[in-house]
Design a protein around this nucleic acid. Structure first.
Length: 547
RNA sequence: GGUCCCAUGGUCAAGUGGUUAAGACACUACCCUUUCACGGUGGCGACAGGGGUUCGAAUCCCCUUGGGACUACCA
C-alpha cells in the first residue's frame, strides 16, 4: 500500500466499494445508436423556476427526438437551502406542463428506474467511494482548513482575498504528509476532499458545446472541493458520479455553469471517464430600467412556473412559448402544422441562440390566444372551470350552475372560419364576459361615452328589445336592425352618411354601438345577435328597463 | 479586480463574405365589415462605435463601449 492508498483508508475506513463496483452495478443503457439520455436535476430550494422548465423542454426534445430517455434527479445536497416539499413541487410542475420524464425521481410518488437512487442525499456512500478512489490514486487530498459558515462570511473573505490578491488556487493542505494527516484526524478535525488539480490556466484546450459550438477554454487550475466535510459532495462530483452512472449523454444546463466546465472536465479526466456532451443554455432575462437581468426568484412573477397556472394560461401556451424562445422557427412550423404534436417539431439544440432572451408577455399572450382560439366551446368550459375551481370559486360556481348557457356563450363567434382571438388566459374570462354572467346593475355601464341623450338611448334600446324576434335568424335580425336604425334617423348607407353627417343621428355602426354598450357595457364584444339570443327575452327587457 | 459569455428594429430573431438585411409579436394606416374582433394590404423601425483584412463585411480580426455570468465546503 502506498501513502495515497493509506490516506484513503484513513479518511474512509468504512467505505469498501470502488467506482469499478458501481460501473458494473449500473451497466450501460441498452439503447439504439445515437439515443440521447438527458436529465433535469432541480434543487429543492423553493418554487419551480421557469428557467428549469425551459431546460426541461430542451431535455425532453433531445431525448424524444433521438429515441432516448429523459429522467429526473433531485439535487438536494445543500441542506441549508432546502425547502420542504420543493422536490415534489418541481416534479408536479413538469408533470403539469406535460414535460414528462420517463424515469427517476417522482415527487411524493417515489421513484422509478434502474439507476437510482435518484435523490442525491441517498447516494452519499457512492460519492464517498468515488472520492476515496481519487485520493487513493493521488488526485485528491483532505483539506482541514476551517470553512466559512455562511454566505456573508464567504463573500467577505473572498472580497478580502480579491483586494489582497491572495485568492488561492491550490490549498495549503495539498502538501500535508501522511503523518500530518494522521495527526489532524486524531485531533478530530473535520475535513473536506479537494481535487489535486494538474491543470494550468495559462493553457487552453478546445471543446465543443452543443449550443455555443467550438470554443477554446482555459484549463482548470483550482483545487475544487469534491466532498464537503459533511460527507456530501458539492455539484461537481455529484454531477460526475450521477451523470456517469445514470448514463446521461448530454447535459443541458444554464449558462452560469459554463465557467466551471473546465474543472468538471478535469474531474472526468482524473477518473479516466469519457467526457459528456454539454449544452449551456442562455438565461431567461427581463428588462429592468433599460438593463437586462436574470429573472429573479424573489421579484418576478414570471420566474415561478406556477404563476402561469394561476393566471390561467393553457399549459401548452407556456411550453410553446419556451420552445419559441429556443427555436424561433417553431412559430412558422406551428402555423403550418396547427394540429401536429409538439414533439413532431424538428427541434435542434444547435439552433438555440446564445443571447439571453427577454421574457415577453405580449408574445406569450399572442401564442396563447392562438391556442385558445382553436378550442371548442366545450373545451373552454372544461378548462376554464378546472382553473376557476382552483383560483376563482365565484366564477366556478357560475359556470357550474349554468353549464349549457356558459357553453353557448363561449360558442359565440367560435365555430366559424376565423374565430376571435381575444382570450389569452382564463383569468381574463370573468371580466371579458361579465355582461353574460352578472347582474346588469353590477356592470358599470357608461352611457356617457355614447355622446347621446340618455332618453334617446333608452328609446332605441326599448324599441330594439321590444321588437327582438327570437324566431328570427341572423339575416332577418339584421334587416330588422336596419329598419330600426332608419326609424331613429340613423343612416344605413355609410357613403351617403359621409356626405352630410349632420343630417343624421349617426351611421349604422353607431346605432349598433349604442345597443351594444347599453346592453353589455362594452364597446367590444362578440356577435351582438348571438349575445341577445343567449341573454333571453326577460333579461333583455330587464336591461332595457334598467337604463 | 480576474475570467468567461453576449451584442441585428421596442421584444424574439433569420442571416456564416456579394440579400432591396427575412419573419413573428407590439405599434400604426388603410381595406373588408352591422359594432368589436378576425382577416387582408401597407407603414414605422435595426446590423453599438472605431479601426483593420478584402474588389466587396451584419458576417472574419483588433480595440472601445454596453450588457450578462462566474469567481463558495450553493446549485
Amino acid at each position: 500500500m502506498n501513502d495515497n492508498q493509506k490516506i484513503a483508508e484513513l479518511l474512509f475506513p468504512n467505505i469498501t466499494t470502488t467506482p469499478e463496483y458501481y460501473y458494473k452495478k449500473y451497466p450501460k443503457r441498452y439503447l439504439k445508436d445515437g439515443a440521447e439520455v438527458t436529465r433535469i436535476a432541480p434543487s429543492p430550494t423553493g418554487f419551480y423556476h421557469i428557467g428549469g422548465l425551459y431546460q426541461a423542454v430542451i431535455d425532453k426534445f433531445v431525448a424524444a427526438k433521438s429515441g432516448g430517455v429523459f429522467y429526473m434527479r433531485l439535487e438536494d445536497t445543500d441542506q441549508k437551502r432546502e425547502i420542504a416539499d420543493a422536490g415534489n413541487i418541481a416534479y408536479e410542475a413538469l408533470r403539469y406542463y406535460g414535460v414528462t420524464t420517463q424515469e427517476g425521481y417522482m415527487g411524493s410518488l417515489g421513484e422509478s428506474g434502474e439507476y437510482g437512487p435518484y435523490i442525491q442525499s441517498h447516494r452519499a456512500e457512492i460519492y464517498q467511494s468515488f472520492a476515496k478512489y481519487l485520493v487513493s490514486i493521488g488526485r485528491a487530498y483532505p483539506c482541514f482548513c476551517t470553512k466559512a459558515e455562511d454566505k456573508a462570511e464567504i463573500l467577505e473573505r473572498r472580497e478580502k482575498e480579491l483586494e489582497e490578491g491572495t485568492l488561492i488556487m491550490h490549498d495549503k493542505c495539498r502538501e500535508l504528509t501522511l503523518s500530518e494527516i494522521e495527526d489532524n484526524l486524531k485531533a478530530g478535525k473535520p475535513f473536506a476532499i479537494r481535487l489535486k488539480s494538474m491543470g494550468d490556466p495559462d493553457k487552453t484546450f478546445t471543446f465543443r458545446d452543443e449550443i455555443k459550438g467550438e470554443r477554446e477554454i482555459r484549463e482548470n487550475g483550482k483545487d475544487i472541493v469534491i466532498l464537503k466535510s459533511d460527507g456530501i459532495p458539492p455539484y461537481c462530483l455529484a454531477h460526475l458520479v450521477d451523470d456517469t452512472l445514470m448514463g446521461t449523454t448530454t447535459v443541458v444546463r444554464g449558462e452560469e455553469w459554463y465557467q466551471s466546465l473546465a474543472s468538471h472536465i478535469e474531474l472526468f479526466d482524473a477518473f479516466g471517464l469519457p467526457r459528456l456532451k454539454y449544452a449551456h443554455t442562455p438565461v431567461i432575462s427581463k428588462l429592468d430600467n433599460g438593463n437586462k437581468r436574470k429573472i429573479s426568484k424573489r421579484k418576478d412573477v414570471e420566474a415561478d412556473s406556477r404563476s402561469f397556472r394561476i393566471m390561467g394560461y393553457p399549459k401548452e401556451a407556456v411550453v410553446e412559448y419556451l420552445v419559441t424562445l429556443a427555436n424561433s422557427d417553431f412559430e412558422d412550423w406551428r402555423a403550418a402544422n396547427p394540429d401536429a404534436k409538439l414533439l413532431d417539431f424538428p427541434f435542434s439544440v444547435s439552433k438555440i441562440g446564445s443571447n439571453n432572451p427577454i421574457f415577453d408577455w405580449a408574445k406569450l399572450n399572442d401564442i396563447s390566444k392562438n391556442i385558445i382560439a382553436r378550442y371548442s366551446a366545450e373545451e373552454i368550459y372544461n378548462k376554464s372551470l378546472a382553473w376557476a375551481k382552483e383560483y376563482n370559486m365565484d366564477f366556478a360556481k357560475k359556470l357550474e350552475d349554468n353549464k349549457e348557457y356558459a357553453i353557448s356563450v363561449f360558442n359565440i363567434d367560435r365555430e366559424i372560419a376565423k374565430p376571435r382571438k381575444d382570450i389569452a388566459k382564463w383569468e381574463d374570462l370573468p371580466s371579458y364576459y361579465d355582461y353574460m354572467f352578472n347582474e346588469y346593475a353590477t356592470l358599470n355601464v357608461d352611457l356617457a361615452q355614447l355622446d347621446m341623450n340618455v332618453l334617446d338611448i333608452r328609446n332605441i334600446v326599448e324599441d330594439y328589445v321590444n321588437t327582438f324576434d327570437f324566431g328570427a335568424d341572423k339575416d332577418q335580425w339584421f334587416a330588422r336592425v336596419k329598419e330600426l336604425a332608419v326609424k331613429h334617423n340613423f343612416c344605413i348607407d355609410n357613403k351617403l352618411y359621409k356626405v352630410d353627417p349632420t343630417k343624421y343621428n349617426g351611421n349604422l355602426a353607431k346605432f349598433c354601438t349604442i345597443i351594444r354598450v347599453a346592453l353589455t357595457g362594452k364597446t367590444n364584444t362578440p356577435d351582438l345577435y348571438s349575445i341577445c339570443m343567449s341573454l333571453g327575452k326577460r333579461e333583455l327587457k330587464n336591461r332595457a328597463q334598467a337604463i
